[in-house]
Amino acid sequence: MPTAMLMASEAAAEATQNAFTVSGPLIVASWEMFGMTWNLTESVIVQWIVMLIILVICLVLGTGLKVIPTTRRQALAEWLVTFVNDMVDGSMGEKYKSYKPYIGILIVYVILCNLISLVGLRAPTADVSVTATLAIITFFMTQYNRAKTGKLKGYLKAFIDPLPFMLPSNIIGEISNPVSMALRLFGNMVAGMVIGGLIYFALGNFAVLIPAVASLYFDIFSGVIQAYIFTMLTMSYISNAECE
């Protein structure tokens, strides 16, 4: 019995080596500072690449603009700006003009972070610390907008609205917004990554055509839709936090 068990565990260990595993982002470098360990992960490096891509896009689209567009790239740039303008005006209203740059960069950034997995890099949004950062920014913008529109009285009153005994559920609701936003983007991206990996693992040497079809849905469609949803939810949370 003991030997059989040991053999079984050895076989299991061998099977684990051949099996499909999912790993977190690689740690490229780490150092000690202020009594904490700071890790430079793959996600950060890929985000730098995404930022470089955005910089190049801005330089290409933003130079040599004319009042009457003559080039195709100016038409594309104007289409992008009009898209963001209409999106913010449509779901937040005219008075949230100052949020347009953030919303615009957020949707472009998240779309590029999702789609960069197409070139073989690990998508930074499949790392919960990246999505949680974006969700926490949204959370603080929500709180800022509530405090700005309602001042201290309105801000505190929003927590006992409509009745004082709703206070605990209001606080939980306020905290669960960023948690659900972060986990939604992370869960969708990591699910796409896991399913893509499983398909490659299952097909082995015959991985032609089928992974491409799956990637069309899980990488391109899901990536763009989730970026859109993340942006729309950011906008609706910020504008819903407004006090009368």
Partner: peptide
């Protein structure tokens, strides 16, 4: 369509929570 996509995203939340729990248990 815009409202539907937002509604889908909200409805999806519990499923994503379950996925996160499953991934935690597995990996």
């Amino acid at each position: 369509t815009r409202t539907m996509i937002i509604g889908d995203a909200i409805a999806e939340t519990t499923g994503i929570y379950a996925l996160v729990v499953a991934l935690l248990l597995l990996y």
